[in-house]
Amino acid sequence: MSAGNGRELRIVGFLCNWCSYGGADTAGVSRLGQPTDLRIIRLPCTGRMDPLFMFKALLSGADGVLVSGCHPRDCHYSEGNFYARRRLELAKRLLPTLGFDSGRFEYTWVSASEGKRWQQVVTAFTEQIHTLGPGPKFSH
């Protein structure tokens, strides 16, 4: 079940352990089919998400980056996702300056019980990245 014309693009996901990683697990347990482009990196909290990871991924050849954490107010560490929200919103606005379409990066909130929502988020984001096509590649 790949979005687009069968060719995979490279999407890197950063998920907090407590909510969204669990939500992705819930989607798996419920066998909710998703496109296969996404690869997930587990973080303890979206508060651990350094915006540099996102820039690094895009500069290294990723076509899209997705961050997902607990809903605001539900953070396992009380306030980590509030920090994430401020940092990531700012980082997203910087993307065009670096030559990236800001649609290549999204952040969202999915709880551990929201398997269905995770399926929708992954499907929609993968479609979005396929619409944008492969990202700009930088030679080193």
């Binding site: 079940m1 790949s2 995979e8 992705a24 697990d25 989607a27 798996g28 347990v29 066998r31 909710l32 089919g33 998703q34 496109p35 296969t36 690869r39 997930i40 587990r42 399926q119």
Partner: peptide
């Protein structure tokens, strides 16, 4: 490496799953 919940259970295409 989570190749069940995040891979084998959510993708239908065996080749794509194996690559993932």
């Amino acid at each position: 490496a989570n190749i069940r919940e995040h891979c084998s259970w959510v993708g239908k295409d065996k080749d794509a799953n194996t690559r993932k």
